[in-house]
Simulated scan of single mutants.
Amino acid sequence: MRYPQGCGLTAERRAFRERIRMEAAGMFAAGQDNAAVAKELRVSVRSVRRRRRSWQEGGRQTLHSKGPAARPEPNGALFAVLEQEPAKGPVAHGRPDQAWTLARIKTLIGRRFHRTLTLSAIARMLRRHGGSHQVPARRAIERDEDTVAGWVKETWPRVKGPRRRSAAGSSSRTKPVSRWALPRFP
């Protein structure tokens, strides 16, 4: 099931699920068994058992939604402050070079905001705010275009290696040649 904007349920779906849980609470109070509640509400018996246990421990209020299970996405206020930190440069944050990586941004967020985000959440946040991992905002001062051009022409072809020749064989790594490619003997 895909959710709108990639996060959580719609308001209508949340209200529907809340209504189902409250109906289940009424059925629990009426003394109906788990199978009857599951059949009536069209949910699994396992889910009914879990809800009944929760209802018995704390009553009707324990069946109310506690919000989304996932951590909330980083908000705009966090990003506004975070945007100023990388502008100072990695050297200002104790890094020896001018490169920002997702791991370094994760460390920065942890130190500055005392929050832990996954690398994919950081990448999504950066993409959402127009960031790109491929194009830097400005070129490094130390960059020498002649050296880069020479490396691409001379060193890269040696490092890359020659292209593999196409030859008859199998695409399977475990089976070198198909049995149909071998000659048949009578």
Rank of each mutant, 00 (worst) to 15 (best):
A69R: 11
T116C: 02
H64N: 05
L82K: 00
T118W: 00
S65M: 03
A11M: 06
R115Y: 00
E142P: 00
A29N: 06
R112M: 11
R127D: 07
A24S: 09
I122P: 00
R60D: 04
A80P: 03
H93I: 04
L78H: 10
V148K: 09
A121H: 01
T147V: 15
E83K: 12
Q98T: 13
L117G: 00
P157N: 06
K160N: 09
P176Y: 12
A168F: 15
A69C: 05
K106S: 14
D97T: 02
S172Q: 04
S44F: 05
H64R: 09
T118C: 02
S171Q: 15
A123Q: 13
G94Y: 02
E57R: 13
P162W: 04
R42D: 14
R52A: 08
K88G: 06
L9C: 08
Q84L: 10
F16E: 12
E23A: 12
A69N: 05
E18A: 14
R95W: 12
W151A: 09
L119A: 02
S170V: 10
W180I: 13
R13M: 13
T101M: 00
G76M: 07
W100K: 02
A99I: 14
T62H: 13
I141S: 14
L78D: 11
V91S: 06
R158D: 10
A168K: 15
E18I: 05
S120W: 02
K39Q: 11
A36R: 08
K66T: 12
P136A: 08
C7Y: 14
S54N: 06
S132A: 04
R60L: 09
R112S: 14
K39D: 11
V152S: 01
K88S: 11
R49F: 09
G31A: 05
V148F: 09
P74E: 03
E85A: 10
G8A: 07
R139T: 14
R2L: 10
G169V: 11
M125T: 10
R71Q: 10
N34H: 08
D33K: 07
K106V: 07
K88N: 09
L117V: 01
Q84G: 05
R53N: 11
W180S: 15
K153M: 08
Q32R: 12
G94M: 01
T174I: 10
A168P: 15
G89T: 03
